[in-house]
Amino acid sequence: MADNDQSQVLTVNIVTPDGVVYSHHAHLLVVKAIDGDLGIMANHEAIIAPLKISEVRVHRVDENHMDSIAVNGGFLEVSNNQASITADSAERAKDIDLRRAQRAKARAEEKIKTAQSHNDSDEMLRAQVALRRAVNRISVSGHQSQ
């Protein structure tokens, strides 16, 4: 890639209500949309897609570097070599507190047991989402930047 050839570069931004969590240039962005996995490169057709609670992988332009970010759902919008993810929360792998995520997983599992014993479907749904978020954070924490 030529140094000044911006037509082959995708700018990736991840934003939460707390502000910008991530912003870098990339060759490839990989996300899990509700309808399946998406690989986004420069010059991709404009799209908007809802995302699952999952890992986002950004293959950066600098020295074959890859970043992993845990996102809790949200939306991806791609247009004009700009990929923007808007999510309720997002954490880079290097910023995840593994012990805290493991405690959140244990709490969610306990809430699931309680909801099952009380036949509480609303609490069950909330606990299942909390469990998916915790498991995602634990998984992503093992994918430190390469």
Rank of each mutant, 00 (worst) to 15 (best):
Q8T: 13
Q8K: 08
V9L: 11
V9T: 14
L10D: 13
V12C: 05
V12G: 04
I14D: 02
I14C: 11
I14G: 09
I14V: 15
V15R: 00
V15P: 00
T16L: 09
T16A: 09
D18A: 08
D18R: 02
D18V: 01
V20C: 12
V20I: 15
Y22I: 02
Y22H: 09
S23L: 09
H24E: 15
H25T: 14
A26V: 07
H27W: 11
L28F: 10
L29W: 09
L29C: 05
L29A: 10
V30C: 05
V31Y: 03
A33M: 06
I34H: 11
I34Q: 15
D35K: 03
D37R: 14
L38V: 01
L38F: 05
G39Q: 10
I40D: 14
M41R: 11
M41Q: 14
A42L: 04
A42V: 05
H44R: 09
E45C: 11
A46W: 06
I48W: 05
I48A: 13
I48S: 14
I48M: 12
P50K: 04
P50D: 09
E55Y: 02
H59W: 12
H59C: 08
H59Q: 13
H59V: 13
R60C: 14
V61H: 06
D62Q: 14
D62Y: 13
D62P: 03
D62G: 14
E63G: 15
N64A: 13
N64F: 10
N64Y: 10
H65A: 12
M66F: 09
M66W: 12
M66Y: 12
D67K: 02
D67T: 10
D67C: 08
S68L: 01
I69A: 05
V71F: 07
V71Y: 06
N72L: 06
N72Q: 12
N72I: 01
F75V: 05
F75I: 04
F75G: 07
F75M: 08
N81S: 10
N81Y: 11
Q82A: 08
Q82W: 05
Q82E: 15
S84E: 15
S84T: 15
S84G: 09
T86Y: 13
T86C: 08
A87W: 04
A87E: 13
D88K: 06
D88T: 06
S89W: 03
A90S: 05
A90L: 02
A90D: 10
E91W: 06
E91G: 04
R92G: 07
A93I: 01
I96E: 12
I96C: 10
I96H: 09
D97T: 03
D97I: 01
L98F: 09
R99G: 11
R99P: 07
Q102W: 04
K105L: 08
K105E: 15
E110D: 14
K111G: 07
K113V: 02
K113N: 06
K113L: 07
T114C: 01
A115P: 03
A115Q: 05
S117P: 01
H118Q: 13
N119A: 10
N119E: 09
D120Q: 03
S121D: 12
S121R: 13
D122Q: 12
D122Y: 13
M124T: 00
L125E: 03
R126C: 00
A127G: 01
A127L: 01
Q128T: 04
Q128F: 00
V129S: 04
V129R: 03
L131Y: 05
L131V: 00
R133P: 15
V135H: 02
N136F: 00
R137Q: 13
S139D: 14
